[in-house]
Simulated scan of single mutants.
Amino acid sequence: MDCPTCATPMHLLLTVDSSEWDGGSGSWTPVEDRGLPPHLYATPTGVIVGRSGELNIFACPTDPAHPHRWAIQ
């Protein structure tokens, strides 16, 4: 994703995900939550982005005053 002001490739600043872990690989499951069903325990904040996706926010590395951009996946 490029900066709309200066066309510099932007850096990922922040990702907000709908869940902490998905139960697929289990590699990111907290130790205390292993063995629990993901749909009940992987979303402690209750934040849902889009249709259970993630929000990525990008910033311009050249000038932080340039507008941020975002994408939902």
Rank of each mutant, 00 (worst) to 15 (best):
2 D>Q: 04
59 A>V: 13
15 T>S: 11
14 L>D: 05
8 T>L: 00
65 A>E: 02
1 M>C: 09
35 G>D: 00
37 P>M: 06
24 G>T: 14
30 P>S: 09
65 A>Q: 07
6 C>N: 04
64 P>F: 07
24 G>V: 14
47 V>H: 05
69 R>E: 00
6 C>S: 02
50 G>Q: 06
20 E>T: 06
30 P>V: 15
45 T>K: 01
9 P>H: 10
18 S>P: 03
9 P>Y: 01
34 R>F: 05
40 L>Q: 14
4 P>L: 07
15 T>C: 09
37 P>A: 03
58 F>H: 07
11 H>M: 00
48 I>T: 12
43 T>K: 09
56 N>T: 08
69 R>M: 03
55 L>N: 00
30 P>A: 08
23 G>Q: 10
73 Q>H: 11
69 R>T: 15
73 Q>V: 14
49 V>F: 12
30 P>R: 12
2 D>T: 13
25 S>K: 14
35 G>L: 07
51 R>C: 09
71 A>Q: 12
59 A>T: 14
53 G>P: 04
18 S>R: 00
43 T>I: 00
30 P>I: 15
22 D>H: 15
57 I>F: 10
57 I>R: 05
35 G>K: 05
5 T>N: 10
67 P>R: 04
7 A>Y: 12
19 S>Y: 07
62 T>F: 02
27 S>P: 00
51 R>Q: 08
39 H>S: 13
6 C>I: 04
14 L>A: 05
8 T>I: 10
50 G>K: 03
24 G>K: 11
7 A>V: 13
60 C>H: 01
5 T>W: 05
62 T>E: 01
40 L>N: 03
35 G>P: 11
64 P>N: 06
13 L>Y: 14
49 V>D: 03
23 G>W: 15
23 G>R: 14
20 E>K: 02
25 S>L: 15
71 A>L: 11
50 G>R: 05
9 P>S: 09
2 D>P: 01
9 P>T: 12
56 N>M: 11
46 G>W: 03
19 S>D: 02
29 T>Y: 07
69 R>S: 02
63 D>H: 09
52 S>F: 08
55 L>T: 11
32 E>G: 01
56 N>H: 11
44 P>H: 07
51 R>M: 06
54 E>R: 13
14 L>H: 12
2 D>N: 13
73 Q>S: 11
44 P>K: 01
60 C>S: 00
29 T>F: 07
54 E>W: 06
37 P>K: 00
7 A>H: 12
53 G>V: 13
50 G>E: 03
54 E>G: 06
19 S>M: 07
6 C>H: 02
3 C>T: 09
65 A>H: 08
7 A>S: 13
20 E>D: 08
27 S>V: 15
71 A>K: 13
47 V>S: 01
25 S>R: 15
47 V>M: 00
21 W>G: 02
48 I>L: 04
18 S>T: 14
69 R>F: 03
2 D>K: 15
72 I>V: 15
19 S>N: 05
63 D>W: 07
61 P>C: 04
11 H>L: 10
